[in-house]
Computed example of a mutant assay.
Amino acid sequence: MRLARLVPSRPAPPPRPAPGDVLAEAEDVRVRLGTRTVLDGVGITVRAGEVLALVGPNGAGKSTLLGALAADLPVSGGVVRVHGRPAEQWSAPELALRRSVLPQSASLSFPFRVEEVVRMGRAPWAGTDLEDEDDAAVAEAMARTEVTAFAARPFSALSGGERARVALARVLAQRTALLLLDEPTAALDLRHQELVLRLCRERARAGDAVVVVLHDLGLAAAYADRAAVLCAGRVAADGPPAEVFSGRLLSEVYDQPVEVFPHPRTGAVLVTPRRDM
């Protein structure tokens, strides 16, 4: 008698969210790293159809909060929910169909070609009904991030900015409804910073939720629907940039005099350090 080979079942792809659906949230979250409390009682909500920028000075807890929302970092208190369920209740394959994560730096030990790196984003969909979309998803992601021209080059041979765009292409190819991006513009020139934030806006308009850690307050003001200003492990303000980006608040949070004023042509919020010279 021949025994049937057991094939692990693949998790079912989640349905597309409706506008305004909560795709991730932190409730009274605390995170300790070693002896240091990095997040202390943080609450944040991430909704489909919006770009949420996490801003604040170095050490404020931005990347830690992103890691907690991704369920990549355990919390010592409170709860993180992803797609309405406590994060720890999702398996790794289930999470990979629901959220994609761009870390601060991308490094690989093997000489993968650029296209192979981007294709790694499709791994969660293997064995599902959407596996047939792999080629189209990879091609579209590379085109949108402008890396198609060096698809055959080794990832290790790229510049820092090129690697950052390839890493973003991998996230886009994954096609999840929740994108968590940690400083995606840090290594990029002016043109590609704008490109990346336009892609974030496009994904939000298409119904995704995008959380992006940014140091550039001007980019946050221009592209984010909401901004959460973190300071010393807490949320100092949360709301539309035009409402929460005040000179007084930012000067206090960054311990640096800051001026906030409207753009003379568009009226959009502009943020700049105050320089008395």
Rank of each mutant, 00 (worst) to 15 (best):
V42D: 06
R113H: 09
V147N: 04
L66M: 08
H263G: 03
R98K: 08
R119D: 11
P15C: 13
G218V: 09
S251R: 07
D72H: 15
A70C: 08
P124L: 13
R226S: 07
R191I: 15
T64M: 07
A164G: 02
G239D: 09
L97W: 08
E243V: 09
E243D: 14
V258Q: 12
G84T: 04
M277R: 13
A242N: 02
A204L: 04
R201H: 07
R153E: 08
L190G: 06
V235D: 01
A96T: 15
Q174E: 06
A220F: 02
T37K: 14
A141D: 03
P86Q: 00
V147G: 03
L250H: 04
M1F: 13
V38I: 01
E94Q: 11
L168M: 08
A141Y: 07
E252T: 15
E183A: 03
L54W: 04
A228Q: 02
S9Y: 11
D208Y: 00
L181I: 12
A232S: 14
V101F: 04
R5A: 09
R165G: 01
V75C: 04
R175V: 14
A48E: 05
A209H: 01
D225H: 12
R205P: 00
V22P: 10
H83P: 14
Q104Y: 05
R113N: 07
V29Y: 08
E115W: 14
A68H: 02
R234S: 11
A106G: 14
D255W: 10
L158E: 04
P111G: 02
R113P: 01
T266K: 05
R170A: 08
R10F: 04
G20P: 02
A206W: 00
S100A: 11
E183W: 02
